[in-house]
């Protein structure tokens, strides 16, 4: 399976620039910029991405955080990162009590199979984290680059 994918990808790979790649370390560093010294805890947050996608160009992703979204207790921000795209950041989103529900959906690009992480910054200064692995398969018939 993987040798086939590698061979199929070869003609295309020749045309691509040497990739500048995010790494698991780069992802952890980007996460640290958000977290400071705090340690995020799992639980109370869901990162919804399909485990296997036909095409990495538009992968649906949704983050749902369990919170009453009141003035006293709400989610201030949701941050999403990835391991292997050229940059670790996917998006930052800022929300608050006016959101009513801590739930954000978008579609992302994943150049390769990798891990994605979502962090929620809570109004009490704590952080929550959820991670997911996505396997990306390649399309069979590429279009020539024109």
């Amino acid at each position: 399976m993987s040798y086939r994918r590698a061979i199929l990808a070869a003609p295309l790979a020749l045309l691509l620039a040497p990739p500048a790649r995010a790494t698991p370390e780069a992802m952890r560093e980007a996460m640290r910029a958000v977290l400071g010294t705090a340690a995020p805890r799992p639980g109370g947050i869901a990162l919804d991405v399909p485990p296997l996608v036909d095409n990495g160009n538009a992968v649906p992703l949704e983050v749902i955080v369990d919170s009453p979204m009141t003035d006293a207790a709400h989610v201030r921000a949701i941050h999403v990162f990835n391991e292997k795209n050229p940059q670790p950041l996917v998006f930052h989103a800022w929300l608050g009590p006016a959101s009513g529900r801590a739930r954000v959906a978008t579609r992302i690009k994943l150049g390769d199979s990798q891990r994605v992480a979502a962090i929620a910054a809570m109004s009490d200064g704590t952080f929550r984290i959820a991670e997911a692995d996505v396997i990306v398969t390649l399309a069979a018939c590429f279009e020539e680059l024109t």
Binding site: R4, D54, N55, A58, T137, L138, A139, A140, F142
Partner: peptide
């Protein structure tokens, strides 16, 4: 075929948004 399902090639949905094309 290398991860992609081979369809029967029925032109049921054109024009269409192909993720590969974006």
């Amino acid at each position: 075929l290398a991860g992609a399902a081979i369809p029967q090639a029925h032109p049921t949905a054109y024009p269409l948004y192909r993720l590969e094309w974006q």
